[in-house]
Nucleic acid binder design. Sequence first.
DNA 1: CGGGGCTTGTGACAAGCATCACGAGGGCGC
DNA 2: GCGCCCTCGTGATGCTTGTCACAAGCCCCG
Lengths: 237, 237
Amino acid sequence: MGSPYGFELVENCVICKLRTDSFFCSLPKTALEAFDKIKYSASYPAGAVLFVEGQSPRGIYMLCKGRVKLSTTSAEGKTLILKIAQPGEVLGMHATVSGTPYEITAETGQPCQLNFIKREEFLNFLQKHGDACLKAAQHLSKDCQSAYQQIRSLGLSHSAPERLARLLLEWTASTHDQAEPKVKLALTHEEIAQIIGTSRETVTRVLADFRKRQIAVLKGSTLTIRNKSVLEKLVGA
Amino acid sequence: MGSPYGFELVENCVICKLRTDSFFCSLPKTALEAFDKIKYSASYPAGAVLFVEGQSPRGIYMLCKGRVKLSTTSAEGKTLILKIAQPGEVLGMHATVSGTPYEITAETGQPCQLNFIKREEFLNFLQKHGDACLKAAQHLSKDCQSAYQQIRSLGLSHSAPERLARLLLEWTASTHDQAEPKVKLALTHEEIAQIIGTSRETVTRVLADFRKRQIAVLKGSTLTIRNKSVLEKLVGA
DNA sequence: CGGGGCTTGTGACAAGCATCACGAGGGCGC
DNA sequence: GCGCCCTCGTGATGCTTGTCACAAGCCCCG
């Protein structure tokens, strides 16, 4: 079938080509089929809001394709980005599992395909399928870990350059041992600022400084690390 | 039986008087008995280190009695306290479930009773007992939530008074509708500073300011909120 | 009761950064 | 092609707070 957002909508998890090795995708067949029965597939355009902090949990969203921005906002309107979710991740699981309101906001950053599962059916599913429940626990653990990492970044470093250096290293962590690692990312300075908890102007200035010192260059949406060791020094001390 | 730290060591979870309504304590009988079989009970003095960030996970600790300080430390030796764990909480579950190194350090803040469970046996236990696994997921969700709350506090507020006000309100959240809520806590200014990510001197100064303005008074280990609405105003805007 | 060692209180100073303000570039629709 | 809006670049300014330095309590223990 066709789709309004430029890609095929895959309706069946069992034969899905998007499946990654992460989380629910890698369930044994019986669990996967059960999962397939209770899910609702849907496509969303960029900028769609899946849920807002404070809402009581309707259920979980499993991200098949695209990127989703997870953020939280203060009373004054200041926004902090918690993470950019990648395909394979499950969104809104904390709230759904614990029954408390969503504590974060999820917004698609580009056209996305998602599977939605209602809260009750998801909880039932977890109870029936022990291996799925264990996967869920693992997923929650990962979320905790990334949260702790962000706490470290926010709480244990005073300078904005240090936090930005840490973020750049994080982004290029998967590119092993290249002379000049390159990463594509479609984030504005404003959004980067919201990740590391600083102002847009500071990000601009620090990036300009990095460019001048030949440490890292962000051109268009391509980030190139020129001197990884200096970045590591910035983070380390 | 006697105990070196001034309280009885309860050896059997099923008949344990310390049981709270939280997490594994409130399991159905069969699961509780299985839990009881694989656990090792032990008492620890104040200042004992249960695990250190970076270690590969040996297993989980279930806190029955006492308080445990969970923290993380930067390369420069700066410490950030993530939370003070209360009885009923499980420590080290993220690392144990996901198999990655402990990302935080756990240190007893007073004499404690803990149950330890080896990683493999714990994972087995979760797989066999679906309701326990669900409880585990709920516990992890709670941890995530408190982590997100701390991220909000660190990332979305620029002033130290604001963060301290938020912390005080958090501490007194359970004391509903008292004219002047009082809370006992045995934390030094240094430790408070490590929770809200500021310096010891700043905590001292802000507390002095709060005292002068009749907002909150910390005397010995007793905290008294004199004017809750001002605190809420500090947090809100 | 008289020391250490830890905690708290306070002043001075400078760095870091948020904020405001404004201008330049670049993409997109009309 | 023209204008509009969003993003990026950059200067000036002042507040917040980290840091250093040191004095005063406080508590525990011999």
